[in-house]
Every structure is written in C-alpha cells, then in structure tokens.
C-alpha cells in the first residue's frame, strides 16, 4: 500500500467534504463574532439575557465541532457515549463543588 494511504472503510466514507468543513468554519467564526458583539451590548447584560445567550452559543459551537469535526455524527456510537459520560461526570463534579463552596462560603469572601 502506498505511503499515507487509507482504506475508505466504514464511517470514513460518510465524512463531510472540504466544502461542508468550510461552511462549519464560517458558522463557528460567525458565532464567535456574535459572542464578541454581545459582550459590549449593555442591554443584554441589564436584561439578564447575556449569560443564557452565551451558554447556548458556546454549546452550539461545542456540538458542531464534536459532531462534524470529531465525526461523532458518523462514527461508532460508543465514542459519543464515552464523551457524554465524561461531560456528565465533569458536570456532576462541578455542581457538587459549586454547591459545596457557595453553601458554606458566601460569594465574594475568600475561604
């Protein structure tokens, strides 16, 4: 087999082409620009929309990279399950630590 060659087996054949990768890159860049713009918009902060909006936008970026660039949309489901397991465990640790610290120590006071 020649150098660097790869058998186009299984999920590889379903991977997106350069055009779709470029489209995803454009969308990711646009979302980053929206996040930057939102940071300087006063009313988003005063109305409390800023935080949920940014969380949704970063979740969309995260999902797009995971699904299309990491090929989770096309690869074996075991990979998706592993990533979801890691994220769920990390979220549990984060929630446990946040509740532990903010229940025992009021925010703004160094423990």
């Amino acid at each position: 087999m020649s150098e660097g060659s790869a058998a186009m087996h299984g999920s590889e054949a379903q991977h997106p082409g350069p055009a779709k990768y470029a489209l995803i890159a454009v969308v990711l860049s646009a979302i980053t620009l929206v996040e930057f713009w939102a940071f300087y918009v006063e009313w988003l902060h005063t109305t409390g929309l800023f935080m949920p909006m940014l969380l949704v936008l970063s979740a969309v970026k995260f999902s797009m990279v995971a699904m299309f660039y990491m090929h989770l949309k096309f690869d074996h489901k075991a990979f998706t399950r592993l990533l979801v397991l890691g994220i769920m465990l990390a979220t549990c640790i984060m929630l446990a630590l946040l509740s532990l610290f903010f229940i025992s120590h009021p925010p703004g006071i160094a423990p």
């Binding site: 990533l83 990390a90 979220t91 640790i93 984060m94």
Partner: peptide, 15 residues
Amino acid sequence: WILIASECLLFGSLI
C-alpha cells in the same frame, strides 16, 4: 476517546 473523557474531568475541575 477514553483519554478525552477523562480529560473532561480534569478541565471540569479546573474550570
């Protein structure tokens, strides 16, 4: 993928 799943815990803790 197992490394990535375990790294989620590392970065989750640091964040």
